[in-house]
């Protein structure tokens, strides 16, 4: 079955809403922010074989912002890594579908949750691919708030020094972090100029425009630089009352909010 990015994104938002609602957990805004990016990655960009999660030539995808894992679990289930039934165990006692990305789940490369880790590990994976002359890509999705972590900038320095052109970073730039807007916490601007100054190949796109995401991911050309896509996103994208609010980083929906969100996503 061929699934389009828009169909996949709509489905995984519905799944994530159900999963997080049932779990009484949080991070809905962060999950919805990256749903479209993941949908394009898994339908248009990444090479993988859901029947063989450890296929040696697969592209490696690492979710550095591990708290947004509900949509990733859903994507992995919907593209065939495991049964969507398993999504019902998210956050539940005895389940390994934990609230942060967990590598025992097929398709998850690295257990994350503490921010600022995955770019370094991804850099090591990309370096291994280059040393072994293997063709796989290593793709890592980071949050904007995560760029506060110094470890990220250590990896940024290292990756460009070693010309890891098989490494792709994607920034979920929704401009809101845990407790406040990025501009009020630790200003990142000029973000593009920062990455360019660190000698990465930089492209930008609307992180909810499927065609633009795909076009930019495929537009990277440098063979001597790592690549970063700054994806301008909206936290909570897809549910009007969750969009661009700090509140929905942590808030878990009550019954009325759940019903309203479901209605909006059903009719999307």
């Amino acid at each position: 079955m061929v699934i389009t990015p828009s169909e996949l994104a709509r489905q995984v938002r519905l799944d994530a809403l159900d999963m997080i609602n049932k779990a009484r957990s949080s991070h809905l805004g962060s999950n919805f922010s990256i749903a479209d990016l993941l949908a394009v990655l898994y339908t248009r960009f990444l090479s993988f074989d859901a029947a063989r999660p450890q296929w040696e030539q697969r592209d490696r995808f690492l979710l550095s912002k591990g708290h947004s894992v509900a949509v990733l679990y859903s994507v992995l289930a919907r593209v065939g890594f495991f049964s969507p039934e398993r999504l019902k165990t998210f956050y539940q006692s005895g389940s390994d579908l934990l609230g942060h990305a967990h590598a025992s789940v097929p398709g998850i490369e690295l257990s994350t949750g503490s921010l600022g880790h995955a770019l370094g590990v991804a850099t090591g994976i990309a370096l291994a691919g280059k040393r072994k002359n293997q063709g796989f890509k290593t793709v890592v999705l980071l949050s904007d708030g995560e760029l506060d972590e110094g470890s990220v900038w250590e990896a940024i320095l290292f990756a460009q020094h070693h010309q890891l052109s098989n490494l792709y970073a994607i920034i979920d730039y929704n401009k809101i972090q845990s407790l406040d807007r990025v501009d009020n916490v630790l200003r990142l601007e000029p973000l593009r100029a920062k990455w360019e100054a660190f000698n990465w190949e930089v492209l930008e796109c609307d992180g909810h425009d499927y065609a633009a995401i795909e076009a930019q991911l495929k537009a990277f050309r440098s063979s001597t630089q790592p690549h970063v896509l700054i994806a301008h996103t909206v936290k909570g994208k897809g549910v009007s009352f969750m969009e661009d609010t700090v509140l929905w980083h942590y808030r878990s929906p009550d019954a009325t909010e759940y019903a309203a969100a479901k209605k909006e996503l059903d009719h999307a």
């Binding site: 850099t123 250590e154 990896a155």
Partner: peptide, 21 residues
């Protein structure tokens, strides 16, 4: 030589080790 960047040294080491080194 990873530079004076031990967090990245350890993360990169983990990535390399995941790939069999």
């Amino acid at each position: 030589n990873m530079g004076i960047a031990e967090q990245n040294m350890t993360g990169v080491a983990a990535g390399l080790a995941l790939e069999g080194y």
